[in-house]
Design a protein around this nucleic acid. Sequence first.
RNA 1: GCGCUCGUAGCUCAAUGGAUAGAGUACUGGCCUCCGAAGCCAGGGGUUGUGGGUUCGAUCCCCGCCGAGCGCACCA
Length: 593
Amino acid sequence: MAVSNTCPPPGFDARLQLTELLRQALTSVAPNHGDVEIILERPKQASHGDFASNLAMQLARALKTNPRQIAEQLVRELPASACIAKTEIAGAGFINFTLTAAARTAVVASVLNAGADFGRGNAGLKLQVEFVSANPTGPLHVGHGRGAAYGASLASLLAFAGHRVAREYYVNDAGRQMDILAVSTWLRYLELHQVSVPFPPNGYQGDYVRDMAAQINLAQGDRYVHPAGAVLSCVPGTEDTDDTENLEARLDGLIVAGKDLLGEGWAYIHGHVLNEQLTDGRADLEEFGVHFDAWFSERSLYDTGMVARAVAELEKKGHLYVQDGAKWFRSTAFGDEKDRVVQRDNGIYTYFASDIAYHLNKFERGFDKVIDVWGADHHGYIPRVKGALTALGADASRLDVTLVQFVSLFRDGQKASMSTRSGEYVTLRQLRAEVGNDACRFFYMLRKCDQALDFDLDLAKSQSNDNPVYYVQYAHARICSVLSQLDADALPSLTALALTDLAPLTHEREHALCARLAEFPELIQNAARDYAPHSLAFYLKDLAADFHGWYNAERVLVDDEATRHARLALALATRQVLQNCLSILGVSQPVSM
RNA sequence: GCGCUCGUAGCUCAAUGGAUAGAGUACUGGCCUCCGAAGCCAGGGGUUGUGGGUUCGAUCCCCGCCGAGCGCACCA
């Protein structure tokens, strides 16, 4: 017989308790199946109680018995517990548990005691999350913004779940794209000096390139000026702009010209534009609340000989062969659809080679898991990277690649076009200025990352109840507002509230809100396991809804002191969980709005 | 053609293999002498693209088909 007025001990966990009870019942009913996993879920429907177990259904086949019959046996063998008000068998054989009021409201004390640590796990793995890693060839755009928001939230989530998380940005400072940016800037610089070299259509077109040219002009004057004839002397092909191959060859010719004519000056321009773009991107991300522990340079992999070492290692293990003068990695032996070049016939390593080295380096740093957040357009790249790791004798399952799908911006119902090269795209900075950091971070989290995102600018901007981020923040501000109604001496201390008698919390909505709070630690576990920070955004909407519903149904500041204190405790606990959850997503918690 | 990610209410999206598939939005009607109405309450809305299979049970797992996006470089 359940005793409903018994107070559960501090740190009481109903799920753990019920799991233990079922485990004991199981050993009595089916001693040979003691290893069956005990699953407890929170039913969607309130009439199904606080927790439901499908244990009887799981056993039906093995015991060759009707699930409902097994359920009855299990319930009969269930040890008595002070936290259970009712046990019911329902549906196909579910066992539904209804908790006592005291067991339901106990979470309030747990939240107030744990504070900012409520929900924190103790997972303890050493993880790395690498994200954004955009080429520093121009401003970050809204697609990078999604990767940034997702990666940052994921990293915070994993850290909150108890992992040790390193956040890293891989800087592609060694490739052809950087050369193209440097040559684009140089050509704009030459334009300032009336040297007429036609600007290539496949160069970087954005205004920021002209800005950097002006900076170089200011600092260095005309020392990098060369006549148009000299610049064009090593540019092959015709001016046919329809032939892509021809255009790329001409661009490469311009790069060669720049390196030859400028010598040290090329290194200066290259270094300047790299530093400029990196600094800009870093500032942009910092303002967005996205921080990195490390900025890993691709070039450093060459400088330290890591790339050569990785390729030599593959060669030693017999996974390379030479064809048409190039060195190929036999990735088809590891599930890839074709073999891949790691070193070109001119001796230059491919990007893939440095990426093998990079991932080898990551693995050598001793992470239990390496998580790469990539744009969805890179998905075809996964088999070859994993293949290379396997070929090197590493455990490729330690690498998880999460793909983030594309973002389309909609303004006035119209899709905004995006093209990096042409410079016609909305930057992350523009987006943040227009809709604000909080709405950005939250909107990016309103989709699973493997779902294409249509970002509705007008909705994100609207200061109305259409906007979910305001709905959640409003709940927080409302609680703060209630507390500010009290004189400082009328508000009991946190420790006092944590000890307050919660028996006055009898309303259905109060219990629903408590159940939502109790869900938070489980949410963290599941979301961290699934790399799914979006579920935190959905939880916040539910939590805010439960709070608003309660708030409209009952007053917090009532005359009766016992009731008032219990409700204050619940309001404070709600605010705490809102804070914990919003912090993980990098969204602020305004006191008023 | 091959591969990856998807297809859920009019629209935008959720749903560790569980019970009557949920929110928001839009539409309709209510709630401020009352702690913040950026709020709440009540309505109608569905063959989960489609056809099979596995399972006590499938939006979820497997196969086929239809449709969408993205890939299929000695670019990064």
